[in-house]
């Protein structure tokens, strides 16, 4: 069960590339695991010997700011698992792929989509202190404030540390009724 996520403050790690797909976030050769823990060491495995990963500040970052269309490609949930295990709690981009966004919300990782001017401002200032305020739907950085929208249900679960699985399991009577009506 993820911890509740409300306000996250940290320096930002910036990856300016567009279309960072889940194969790059965690290459397929690390997917033979049957576990979901400990995948942070494989995060961006093919780039870890390069900046910004080699900077000692990288290890403290809880906020990732990435280029457009982050998390496209494969549905592997190993991608948010690896990001969370590394220490990230928020991913900010101007566009985040559908399956990744769904997976992130279920794993204590908040996907934040900003409009392009705000996104460009954050991309241009690596390592700056950023505050992401989920209840207020606000990102604050360098004296500026930017608003964002997030799926209300995903946010409700994240803020309380609730698992959507529990909510779905409570729908059992409706599911049974649906199956009986179709039979």
């Amino acid at each position: 069960m993820p911890e509740p996520l409300t306000v996250v403050c940290s320096r930002s790690l910036v990856l300016p590339d567009q279309n960072l797909d889940t194969d790059q976030i965690i290459p397929a050769r690390f997917l033979t695991t049957t576990e979901r823990e400990g995948l942070g060491r494989f995060l961006f495995a093919d780039r870890r010997d390069q900046a910004p990963w080699t900077d000692p500040r990288a290890a403290e970052c809880k906020i990732l700011v990435a280029g457009a269309n982050f998390g496209c490609g494969s549905s592997r949930e190993h991608a948010p698992w690896a990001l969370h295990d590394f220490g990230f709690r928020v991913v900010i981009s101007s566009e985040i792929a559908d399956i990744f966004r769904n997976n992130a919300l279920k794993n204590g990782l908040l996907p934040v989509v900003l409009e392009s001017a705000a996104h460009a401002a954050l991309l241009a200032a690596p390592w700056q202190e950023i505050e992401v305020d989920l209840p207020a739907r606000r990102v604050r950085a360098a004296g500026q404030e930017y608003s964002f929208e997030v799926d209300p249900f995903g946010a409700w679960c994240l803020e309380r540390g609730l698992d959507a699985f529990d909510y779905l399991l409570q729908q059992e009577p409706a599911i049974t009724a649906f199956e009986e009506a179709r039979a």
């Binding site: 979901r36 549905s75 592997r76 949930e77 948010p80 559908d98 399956i99 769904n102 997976n103 279920k106 794993n107 799926d151 249900f153 959507a164 699985f165 909510y167 779905l168 399991l169 729908q171 059992e172 599911i175 199956e179």
Partner: peptide, 22 residues
Amino acid sequence: FGIGTSEVAHVLATQCLLQRRA
């Protein structure tokens, strides 16, 4: 459509998914 592993568990247990209409 493709789903994540958490959702694989959801479908195994309930034969259902929580989805927003695309």
